[in-house]
Design a binder for these strands. Structure first.
Lengths: 135, 135
DNA sequence: ATAAGGCTTCCTGTTACGGGAAGGTCAAGG
DNA sequence: CCTTGACCTTCCCGTAACAGGAAGCCTTAT
């Protein structure tokens, strides 16, 4: 399989696949013409990577998960630790974003959004309810 | 005021302040010795920038918001448009992360996390069944 | 022979800074 | 006067995970 077909089947750009090879996540063989020659094994890895990335795992997490995946003797606890840590980060990110969202909603709701210059959003960003013109 | 004091008062690293100058968000004066000489006006801008960044606005959003803030004749609708678009992105990000979180929770819950090799997390990532969602 | 499309490598750009080197400046102390 | 140490300056590299695009080779079809 050439990279184009693999990209289609794995649902990711060829650029990404070349990048994964560059950083050592996959090591496809080469044809005599220099083209990458992918085997099923590479496909499986790419599918795995695509799923892990879609769940927000970093590339380094992916590298570790792939290694565990390939290691028949891994302990499932090793995998679970990585997943739990990532889950915690995702949850933290969600709560950060929720705080932003709530503040933004309040600001947006308080702004008339007409052609007058008075804007509670800018006032809020400036702090202390202080618009630059009044400060 | 020198950059150190400004950094303290604005609650951001000096590096960040130099960066903001470099990309034209602020233009502090200079002392004869070459040191940046910040005035209250610069402080206010940095406070504004700190708040806007804390709400997740991009630097380019900040640039536009600052310009509107300085424009006595802006329409509040111009500000509101930026804020609403950003709010929409934040909400989209939250829902993406929630989807990841839910899937991750399912995987983590299904994994024994002991010293046996059987791991539903790896199985899920490999796509051998499990509660993965489409996309 | 030529054109189209796929493949290759290499280089740059992205976001918003952080780390650190090399060196100038300033206030205090001996 | 000299030193020490805390500031400050610019400059350059590194980050995460690729995307865009140039220059050029390979393959297939006409």
């Amino acid at each position: 399989m050439n990279i184009g077909e693999v990209a289609d089947r794995a649902g990711m750009p060829a650029k990404t696949i070349r990048y994964y090879e560059e950083i050592g996540l996959i090591t496809p063989a080469r044809d005599t013409n220099g083209y990458r020659a992918f085997r099923e094994r590479d496909m499986h890895k790419l599918i795995f990577l695509g799923r892990a990335r879609a769940l927000g795992f970093t590339i380094e997490d992916c590298r570790n998960l792939l290694a565990l995946w390939e290691d028949q003797d891994r302990a499932s606890s090793d995998v679970k630790v990585i997943a739990k840590e990532h889950l915690a980060k995702v949850e933290a990110k969600i709560s950060d974003l929720k705080a932003m969202r709530d503040t933004l909603r309040g600001l947006v709701r308080s702004c008339a959004g007409d052609n007058r210059p008075d804007c509670p959003i800018l006032a809020g960003l400036a702090g202390q309810g202080g618009d630059r013109r009044s400060g």
